[in-house]
Simulated scan of single mutants.
Amino acid sequence: MSTDAKLLERWAALAGPGARTVGEDLVRRYREPHRRYHTVEHLAAMLAVIDDLAEDADDTDAVRYAAFFHDAVYAVDRGDNEERSAELAETVLAELGVEPALVAEVARLVRLTAGHAPEPDDRNGAVLCDADLAVLAADESGYAAYTSAVRAEYAHIPDELFRRGRRAVLEGLAQLPHLFRTATARVRYEAKARANLANELAALAD
């Protein structure tokens, strides 16, 4: 089964078979040609991590909805992707008849991915953010593919400017007391992610 088909199957299980048109639109968005990292593969990987961390969330449906919508609007030259994605979620889910409290929670979670800084007691936010950052703990080939895809999305940025910006992002992450918010993710991902960040920072310093 293709990644698109698997995602549509997962969407139908979450939102119901009557929401297939919405699922198809979401998959189409993650297939936009300018995307290299924020793709259907990224979404599928996030959903798999959410499955693994499900016991750490208070509402896994809210977290899964938020995963589907978190990069629904994505353009590298805009700073409001998360806000626009959250607004899309609010509109679409309301039209589907999703209860208002769940719609509000999904939108809140989508907006949270702008900074990946959930409050200590925000279990849903912790799972979503950990799933979004789990790629940092990929194996050597997976991490290389990730960094290559990110660079491709910013191909219009000159190399020196990109390296400077990328260093700033990685240094900010490296200075955090914890990259991951759930205890489960810290055990599984923290050490490898720290090693990957250190290796990439060293490469960027060359």
Rank of each mutant, 00 (worst) to 15 (best):
D71K: 06
A72C: 03
Y74V: 02
A75T: 01
D77K: 08
D77H: 12
R78G: 06
R78P: 07
D80Y: 11
E83H: 02
R84L: 11
S85K: 07
E87L: 12
L88T: 15
E90Y: 08
V92M: 11
A94M: 06
E95A: 07
G97N: 09
V98R: 00
V98F: 01
E99I: 06
E99D: 09
P100W: 04
P100H: 03
P100F: 04
L102P: 02
A104G: 12
A104V: 09
E105G: 03
E105D: 09
V106H: 01
A107C: 00
R108K: 11
R108M: 09
L109V: 01
L109W: 01
V110H: 03
V110Y: 05
R111I: 04
T113V: 08
P120F: 07
D121G: 10
D121T: 15
D122P: 01
R123S: 12
N124I: 04
G125K: 01
L128D: 06
C129M: 00
C129N: 04
D130N: 11
D130C: 09
D132N: 08
D132F: 07
L133T: 04
A137W: 06
E140N: 10
G142I: 13
G142L: 12
A144W: 01
A145S: 03
Y146R: 08
T147M: 14
T147Q: 15
S148N: 13
S148Q: 15
A149F: 00
V150F: 00
R151W: 01
R151M: 02
E153I: 10
I157F: 14
P158A: 09
P158I: 08
D159N: 14
L161A: 14
F162E: 05
R163W: 09
R164T: 14
G165A: 15
G165H: 15
G165K: 15
R167N: 03
A168F: 11
A168E: 14
L170C: 07
L173P: 03
L176G: 00
P177F: 04
L179C: 02
R181V: 03
R181L: 05
T182W: 10
T184S: 08
A185Q: 05
A185K: 01
V187M: 06
V187H: 10
V187N: 07
R188V: 06
Y189I: 01
Y189S: 07
A191I: 10
A191G: 10
K192P: 09
A193L: 05
R194G: 08
N196G: 04
N196F: 10
N196T: 13
A198W: 12
A198T: 15
A198Q: 15
